[in-house]
Amino acid sequence: MPRYDSADSDERSAKHEPTGSVTGLLHAAARGDNGAADRLFPQIYEQLLALARSHMHQENPGHTLQATALVHEAYLRLVGSDPLSWSSRTAFFQASAKAMRRILIDHARRRGRSKRGGDLKREPLDAVDLAVSSDPDEVEALDAAVSRLAERDPRAADVLQLRFYAGLSVEDTAAALGCSERTVKREWAFARAWLYQELQA
């Protein structure tokens, strides 16, 4: 498990990363380079997918695969022990949250389709048979609700995505978003309640 509480004194990045590397992209993204953020996403997505796939093959049957644990493992692989500033880490986890959300919803849709008898072609994700532990319809409904939340309350949605999809602690989420832990807790409680109510409706 990586530790995140290292001092954030590393903007210097002693060694020069090749521009395509994740660390380099993270630094660029942290400096506000939107292109870098865009190039980051597919890399993280690929890595998460590959991890999920290999885990599904290798893990002891019945082993639970935590989406958030995947994100953390992806961090270890892509960033390793390179010290990162909090803003770079934030960029990473924001991209990861987005990627994880995409993986979950893609898979849910595929599962939903196969459940309804369509589309028997094996697609990459089916090969890993990645499953969320709830009903595909629910995953989809949740995803749609998160999108609605993001439209109306971007900050609550940010907290939700970092906490839920990337598995950040309250503390780390607060650091990532530059706000207090108390705020994170309140936003999280609100987002959760609002989504719950949306899904109940």
Binding site: Q66, L130, V132, A193
Partner: peptide, 25 residues
């Protein structure tokens, strides 16, 4: 409505779990 949802939400959104074989919670 929100307060009710808050009280009922329980472990809702506790953790997305990927598990192809078993829901060992």
């Amino acid at each position: 409505r929100l307060i009710n949802a808050h009280e009922q939400a329980g472990s809702f959104l506790a953790m997305p779990t990927l598990d192809r074989r078993r829901g060992e919670a």
